[in-house]
């Protein structure tokens, strides 16, 4: 999950999720960065609408309440 937490950190700091930034953050956290994985994660996240994902994640408690019959 390190790559994902690091990506979300960049996202919430309003920084671009690119290879350099991600590498910086991961290195600062003491994670040994694997370049291929880095590229793959950055490429895959480009396809993901993170704001949408976060909205869904935050909406959950509401979902629980709404589920009450």
């Amino acid at each position: 999950m390190e790559y994902i937490y690091a990506s979300l950190l960049l996202h919430s700091a309003k920084k671009e999720i690119n290879e350099d930034n991600l590498k910086n953050v991961l290195s600062a956290a003491g994670v040994a960065v694997d370049d291929v994985r880095l590229k793959a994660v950055v490429a895959a996240l480009k396809e993901v609408n993170i704001d949408e994902v976060l909205k869904n994640a935050t909406a959950m408690p509401v979902a629980v309440a709404a589920a009450a019959p």
Partner: peptide, 21 residues
């Protein structure tokens, strides 16, 4: 394992966000 496919990372990111919340 955060397998780098968009469909997968969408869910991983959601999980990470939920963890954070």
């Amino acid at each position: 394992i955060a397998y780098p496919e968009p469909e997968v990372l969408k869910v991983t990111a959601q999980k990470a966000a939920r963890n954070a919340i």
